[in-house]
Design a protein around this nucleic acid. Sequence first.
DNA 1: TTGTAGGCGTTATCAT
DNA 2: ATGATAACGCCTACAA
Lengths: 347, 347
Amino acid sequence: MIKAGGADKRATITDVAREAGVSIKTVSRVVNKEPNVTDKTRAKVDKAIEVLGFQPNLSARSLAGNRSYSVGLLYENPHEFSYMRDVLDGVFETCTDGGYSLLLRPCKFPVSRLMKDIQQFLQQARVDGVILAAPLGDVKEVVELLQKKGILFAQIAPKRENPDWIWVQSDDFEASNTLTDYIVSLGHKRIGFIKGHPSHGATTLRYKGYRASLKRHGIKFDAALVSPGLFDFESGKKAAQFLLSLNEPPTAIIASNDDMASGVIHVAHEMGIKIPERLSVAGFDDTPLASRLWPPLTTVKQPIFEMASLVTKLLIDDIRGTMDADHHENFEFDLIVRESTARLNKA
Amino acid sequence: MIKAGGADKRATITDVAREAGVSIKTVSRVVNKEPNVTDKTRAKVDKAIEVLGFQPNLSARSLAGNRSYSVGLLYENPHEFSYMRDVLDGVFETCTDGGYSLLLRPCKFPVSRLMKDIQQFLQQARVDGVILAAPLGDVKEVVELLQKKGILFAQIAPKRENPDWIWVQSDDFEASNTLTDYIVSLGHKRIGFIKGHPSHGATTLRYKGYRASLKRHGIKFDAALVSPGLFDFESGKKAAQFLLSLNEPPTAIIASNDDMASGVIHVAHEMGIKIPERLSVAGFDDTPLASRLWPPLTTVKQPIFEMASLVTKLLIDDIRGTMDADHHENFEFDLIVRESTARLNKA
DNA sequence: TTGTAGGCGTTATCAT
DNA sequence: ATGATAACGCCTACAA
């Protein structure tokens, strides 16, 4: 009798074993690339797998092997998602390539809420490892929880570079240094700076890069030109309103990310301050926003996608127990010069 | 001997059964809220669960019960991610509330590639259902594959409103109609329109809404004022370059989304055309971009988050077999008036 | 209303 | 190098 259409039952390891004329254990060995199988046997099994279109059942594997073949991505859910989009893509691609599936978990501060979110996630998800997007990698409680539970983790852009852990970073200090150098090279001396969210590691590094550049060029640091921010549009606006209302306002403003820089441009427009004629503006991240603003924003591009890919690869290697000695990396950056910055007009 | 720290073994259904003095089947009944359990027994079991902190093992459940308690979100990976971010949040929240986990699968056109992506995903993931974000719900091959495999699905903003399927939509026709009405009410008669990507259902509806409004106001439709687009910045720029170079350029341009509208603003700046004095511009979606542009963009806000939440709820209900009769919904929209649109200056 | 037995598709143990 | 057999934790019959 011919079965009509219907969801064809999936081939199991037993089917493969029968087809290949071996035991299920041998099939299992082949599937998991274990040693101690003759090439001849391996070929037989591979062929049977091919013929039957066998795909191991994840649930069974997970149940028997006590691992899940999935990793979690924990992140703080930001309003401006461009950065996370790239992270997501990088993590996803590497997971897929490595045969892992990806589970998401957006989290919310404060820390108490964070811990609840994560605990709940770990309870129901059983991931083999998690990736902590900044700034989650810097929350002590989170790391301790993971260590206690014996769950492997890897950090993207953490503050502290713990040599025992897995992490990737971009060279935020150098990036900021270079960006500031560029602004200085345009003749600017009064250069405002808007800091990022204090919980992010990048915040300090970008600030330090700015100061280092000023110092190297013999420009006296003026604390009045530095304003706090939270990495979002509104805080960028507030900071800009403050800086541009000074008696002696800056002729250039560096914001610690693009979203805040867009706030600066916004306020400048409102106040009738021409960019870049009377004010140069620069940001960080080269988000889609940067090229859509008017004038287009000078910014620093970090290879977020590549960073996320690598950190995921390192994590998976760790899970598999095949990790190299090198489990951190600093990534290069690109200075993207657009029209929001220009040579200082001697008034 | 006291065990030092260590990953405390998780309680299983057997542990709970022992603790409560019942059989594992009874525990299973309680956990799955099946009938035929006395309140007294249920209370005993609930307490045991509480005491032991029991959480059912997903893999075991999935293996034995032949379902996975997870749903997949399939989407085309757009460069401008704001829309997807809201979708993601809505889907995620509802999944979590319903005890489901969420698996992502960004996909790429063309259809052949799409099918590979999805097939691979279904092979390794075993989801109980999938959500198809626009425009994936309109790809015949995808829907057929899901139906053949017996996988439940739900669509976000599909083109065709198949009454048998689960879907949610926003009222794009009315939204566009209303937006155009507003532009007309400002005195504009030559109103340009940039269409969206042809594969999206919203594209046609937004275009129709525009034409309907013109007609109702007795404004003669001029095909020269309509330009194609692909929902992205670059195509918005191209369309704007075309429209603004006409002998008699439009005094207002409606772009089918914010990203293209940002392209229009960009080009206008380049050409020295003042917004809104000489050109009004409007978009759709109210992405973060809209408020960051200068001048801030008049646009239409759709409740993406709510739509995504509902469609997920409907899908989960369907999976559980508890679906109501109503498995579609049209959502309301809001016209967000900002400074990129203004009354027509009689030159 | 409750419990027992068998099986889901793997991995792991220990023979051979 | 290969294979039989017992877990893994739960659900679905079917009994009691």
